[in-house]
């Protein structure tokens, strides 16, 4: 008790962290979780909701995360709000890499969580294909309340972290922080699809799913 040393996240020994270490951990976590600096990566419609979230009505300042900065070097919370395309993915990954440790990621909206309704060649099917994501927020777009809930959940997560162990423990090789790499991860994959799924915007498209639509093949003279 009273030592700063015994905090080692990788150790399997039953030794518990000492009092000073736990208190310091608590203090560091407390200050980190209450001053998250979000990097607003507003990519499409969810970005509008994000502006509402940062504005006076929903007032993210109550939870200590209102200081949105547009340079990743000053931020520790990446808020991916919107549809990430493969062309934009390089920029998003660069932004993530430029953020200093410790850093967290919230995927806001179904587009950034799973690709959403854009089952398309251009859209990343979930930002977790390229980034490690901490909290997913469903909704299209999610209400600002839901994002506030996600930030509270993230704060609870930060409370359980062990920053001193990372600082004082044996040097760990940098982890290649990656996404799952599961490109075609789709949570609803097992569901039976209907013809309406194939043509979500056309209420008249009622042909069975395996039948190809009638197509005019004759050459126009």
């Amino acid at each position: 008790m009273g030592s700063l040393r015994p905090v080692d996240p990788g150790s399997t020994s039953p030794a518990q962290p000492g009092f000073v270490a736990t208190s310091a951990n608590w203090l560091i976590n407390w200050s980190r979780k209450n001053s998250l600096w979000p990097m607003p990566l507003g990519l499409s419609c969810c970005g509008i909701e994000l502006m509402g979230l940062l504005g006076p009505k929903f007032d993210l300042a109550r939870f200590g995360a209102e200081a949105a900065r547009f340079t990743p070097r000053q931020c520790d919370l990446l808020l991916v709000a919107g549809t990430l395309t493969w062309k934009m993915a390089q920029a998003a990954r660069t932004i993530y890499d430029q953020m200093p440790d410790p850093k967290w990621v919230i995927a806001m909206g179904v587009c950034s969580s799973t690709g959403g309704m854009y089952d398309s060649y251009a859209v990343v099917q979930g930002v977790d294909s390229i980034l490690p994501v901490d909290v997913y927020v469903p909704g299209c777009p999610p209400r600002p309340d839901a994002v506030i809930d996600a930030i509270l959940k993230l704060q609870k997560r930060i409370e359980r972290e062990n920053p001193l162990g990372r600082l004082l423990g044996p040097a760990v090789a940098p982890r290649p922080e990656e996404g799952t790499g599961a490109l075609d991860y789709q949570p609803n994959r097992g569901l039976r699809r209907t013809a309406l799924d194939k043509h979500p915007h056309d209420p008249k498209a009622r042909f069975p799913i395996d039948e190809t639509p009638p197509r005019r093949t004759e050459v126009q003279p």
Partner: peptide, 17 residues
Amino acid sequence: DFPQGGIEPDRLYREWD
């Protein structure tokens, strides 16, 4: 004849990565 899901849509990103 281009499939909806694309042909290797992540190829350029993975090469860059």
